[in-house]
Amino acid sequence: MIGIGEAFSPRYAQARQKFLQACVSAGLTVEPHAHPGKGQGGEELSMDVALDGDANAERLLIVSSACHGVEGHCGSGVQVFALHDAEWREKAKAQGVAVLYVHALNPHGFSYGRRVTQENVDLNRNFLDFSKPLPVNQAYAKLHPLLLPDAWPPTPENQAAVDQWIEKHGAAAFQAAVTGGQYQFDDGLFFGGKAQTWSNKTLRNVLRRHAAGARRLGWIDLHTGLGPNGIGERIFAGRDDKAAYARANAWWGAPAAPVTSVYDGSSTSALLSGLVSEAVYQECPQAEYTGIALEYGTLPMLDVLGALRADHWLHKHPDAPAELADGIRARMRDAFYTDTDAWRGQVVSQARQAMFQAVDGLSG
């Protein structure tokens, strides 16, 4: 075993090394997918994949991290701990479930402490058919100049204008407008892109390679940034399919805490476009798919959005004073990673439960 605190890392390079070392200790072969760029410290970037179990298994569970790069501090810690967890590994093996660990879906964002890819794209808004007209987020278009003002911190006038918009339309409408996904402003927040990103294409290759034979496929995609601190909301991740949602609730739900959904308004997340789970339907059509995003809370929603506004402003102003830039980067990490033993303990405990439940669901 490994201590919970030991499984987590303050930087991508360290997280990757811990993941690779955990795979070696577990006797697993790592399949690296080298990213074309370099990390913030000049390190190699990679989406690393390891399969624990039979390559021809008909029941497969995917556990993935860092879809939104900076959220990888959490997801990587869960993966590293799981690879050292003999009871967990034996549970999956005994029930004939292979586990595919995908470490750092978005390694660039993880290394640079950003939520987006090197293309400034929110990966979880990037899985659309780009040969068709893209969605138009008219509410975001009106907010865009307010969200990314010329100066940072925002002037009192700018903040008053944002507050006025929220007061008029409501916090939920503000969250939906900003986070739902937009495809018009390539320097903006929650930009879904105008083509498939490197991470999108690479993930599809991983699915074709490792999930083509799966008949039942489960997926736990690890996220942070929404909801009460340390609480892992289980958000249904898939198309608006009542049967799949019922399966997700049977696996992971409870009377007091059912699996939530963006489709019925029960989730803390807004309705989103271009979800990463769309790749499963397209690349693994033979599989019965059941998935969740396990979303751990950190800071209040408006604080998280404020951190994201600052991060995007800094990306547009790379020559910002060092003290200001360092403060923005620290604020980003705090928005997506609560650096305490208590939070990490909650994260691992809830993820471990969800993984055990997924194995029971897949083998039931």
Rank of each mutant, 00 (worst) to 15 (best):
E233W: 03
T290I: 14
P258F: 06
S46V: 10
P300I: 00
E157V: 15
E283C: 14
R89T: 09
G361Q: 04
E323Q: 12
A257T: 14
E6D: 14
A173M: 07
V63I: 15
D85I: 08
P154E: 11
S46L: 05
G188H: 04
D221K: 00
I231G: 01
G109V: 07
E278H: 13
L226W: 09
R329K: 14
P228D: 10
A104K: 01
N124C: 06
D360C: 05
K142E: 01
E87Q: 15
I220F: 00
L134G: 06
F191Y: 10
G345F: 05
S111R: 00
K201E: 11
D303C: 13
L147A: 02
H108T: 00
V136T: 10
L28D: 02
R329E: 01
E283D: 11
K201C: 12
L207G: 02
S64Q: 09
G364Q: 04
T117I: 05
F81G: 02
N124G: 05
Q95A: 13
A104W: 06
P318W: 04
A342T: 12
V304C: 05
A250S: 13
N137Q: 07
Q14R: 11
D241V: 04
D52K: 13
A15T: 02
G192C: 03
G96P: 06
Y101R: 09
A254G: 13
K18L: 13
G213Q: 11
G5W: 13
A139H: 14
R59Y: 12
R216L: 03
K316P: 03
Y245I: 09
A248I: 06
F236T: 02
P318M: 04
A66F: 01
R125G: 15
I220Q: 04
S76K: 07
G72N: 04
Q118M: 10
P156V: 07
V347G: 00
A237H: 14
F356P: 14
E71K: 14
I2K: 12
D163E: 11
S76G: 11
A92K: 06
R352A: 03
M47H: 07
G109C: 05
L203Q: 08
F185D: 00
W343G: 08
R329H: 09
A160S: 08
L147F: 03
I62T: 07
I62N: 00
S131F: 10
A66L: 02
P156D: 01
H144R: 12
L105Y: 06
S266D: 10
Q138V: 15
K201L: 14
C284Y: 11
N205C: 11
W198K: 01
R352P: 02
A342H: 15
L305V: 09
L294N: 06
L20D: 08
S111N: 10
Y337T: 09
I292D: 05
W88C: 11
A171I: 06
A307V: 07
Y101C: 08
Q95H: 14
A7T: 01
L147Q: 00
A293G: 14
L28C: 03
G238F: 01
L60S: 08
G238D: 00
A94V: 11
